[in-house]
Every structure is written in structure tokens, then in C-alpha cells.
Amino acid sequence: MTQESTMSVSNEMVMKRTTLVKWDWGIIIACIPVTMYVLIGIFGPIFIDFDPTKTFTGSRLLPPGSVLENGKTAWLGTDQVGRDILSQIIYGTRISLLVSLATVLIGGSVGVLLGLISGYFGGLVDSIIMRIADIQLAFPAILLAILIAGVLGPSITNVIITLSITRWVTFARVTRGATMATKKREFVDSARVLGVSNLKILFKHVFPMCVSPLMVIITVQIGLVIISEASLSFLGLGVPPSQPSWGLLISHGRDYINSAWWIATMPGIALAILVVSVGFLGDKLRDKFDPSLD
């Protein structure tokens, strides 16, 4: 009960704030690194001449800044078969972002839909959906992901499917909370009295009220998904070995940590910076839109 009342209060606050157009520098600063990663992910592979399946055994394990046989400079060094680490990180950015966005989109849509149904209709439907969610939450997400990925086999599509399955629960629970708070509001009652169909009420009146808490959840989940993808690839269950994923790069560089530290360290730094920036952005969004969530 108390959660529902604070939720409605917070929603009112959100409405009040968004009407006042005010720059929030914290959010803008937090957006800069994230935007850079997105731009690199989209345009980077177009501008660099790199084929991840090509190997150059003559220039393997070169330290950062070395000049290669073809006259190019490997700013972040080369890996165990002579491929440029920087180019692989740029390609890996695309994979990380693709997997995280697709997962949030698919897992998020399913979660939001189930959350809306569960929160709005209540009763048996609600009990069934939420008990399934509880069961899944009781099970460690990464173990579940390893299980599913192990059965499906390594490919980008399978990673997205796997992570979507493990991520829908959070979306469903947040949406359900917001829906339950909204459905008791006067405007929803009025719409119902006027004879508006359930479907229309759900998507036209209830869903918009869920958007701001969802924004926060989305940013948090993107960070978690990027890490999950890297973990799965590290374990050899994520993307296939022909794709330069960060997790895979770290995994392959592990054997060379004494002699060629840059193979595992460089993608590790790229991964850490992206996840920290996304998390920071999520924190700022939460502070702004929904201080009651934690």
C-alpha cells in the first residue's frame, strides 16, 4: 500500500518536473561517454579496415604502439595471432551494444506486457505470472544464462534470446508496480466508466505512467546485460570465436597475462568504462525521475 502511494506521489513529481524545461548537467555529462561508445559502435567498423578472421602470425604479441609489417601502428598492441587489439575493441563495441539493446528491447517488451497484464487484471493471472517471476528470481541469473546458452550453442542470436529470458522479470515487476498504482487513479476510473476498452486503457492511460521508472530500469539493465554477454563469451558460451567480443578477447588474453598483458587488459578497460558510464547515467536518471526507487 505504502509503495503504491509513494509511486503516485512520485509520478506527480515527474509530471511537475518535466513541464519545467531545465538542463540537468549531471545527465548531460553522463551521456557523453555513452554517446561516444554508441557512435563508435555504429560508425567505427565502417571507417576502419579490419577483418576479424584475418590473422597475421608474423606480428603476434606486439606491445601497444608497435609498428606492424604493413606500416600501420597498433596503438593497443596485437593479440596472439597478430590482430590489432584496437580494431577488435571497436568491433566488440558493436557486438556489446547490439546484444544489450536487443536484449533490453525483447526482454523489456515481454516484461512490460506481462507486467501490465498482471498489474491491471490482478487475480489468478497476476498470481501465476508473479510466481513464475519469483521462481526465476530465486535462481541465480548467470547460472540460468549458462544453462540456456549451453543448450542453444554459441551465436549472437542465441545470446540475445538467453539474456532476454533472464532479464524480463525485472521489467515485469517494475511495470506491475506502476500499473497497480495507476489503475486506482481517478482518470482511469473515469475512462472505465465512460466505457473505454481495457486494451485502450492499458496502452493509452496506464502505460505512459510506467515510462519514467522504466527508463531508469532500462539503463541499469543495459549495463548488466553487457557484463552478462562478456561473461558468457568468456566462458565460451556467448558469441562464436570468429566474432571479436570483449569477453572473448579477455578470455583469450588470460593465458598471456604475464607476457602480453594488453590483450586482456585493453578490452577490460573498455568494458569497465562503458558499464560505469551507463550505470552513472542510470543513477542520474533515477535521481531525477524517481527518487523513491532504489
Binding site: K54, T55, Q80, H252
Partner: peptide, 14 residues
């Protein structure tokens, strides 16, 4: 080094 050998052979075949 089986992965490295495999990747290198595939690179030559391409």
C-alpha cells in the same frame, strides 16, 4: 594453441 592454429588456417583458406 589449437584456437590460434584454427584461426590462422581459416585465414589462409579465405
Amino acid at each position: 594453441q589449437i584456437l590460434q592454429l584454427a584461426e590462422t588456417m581459416m585465414s589462409y583458406w579465405s
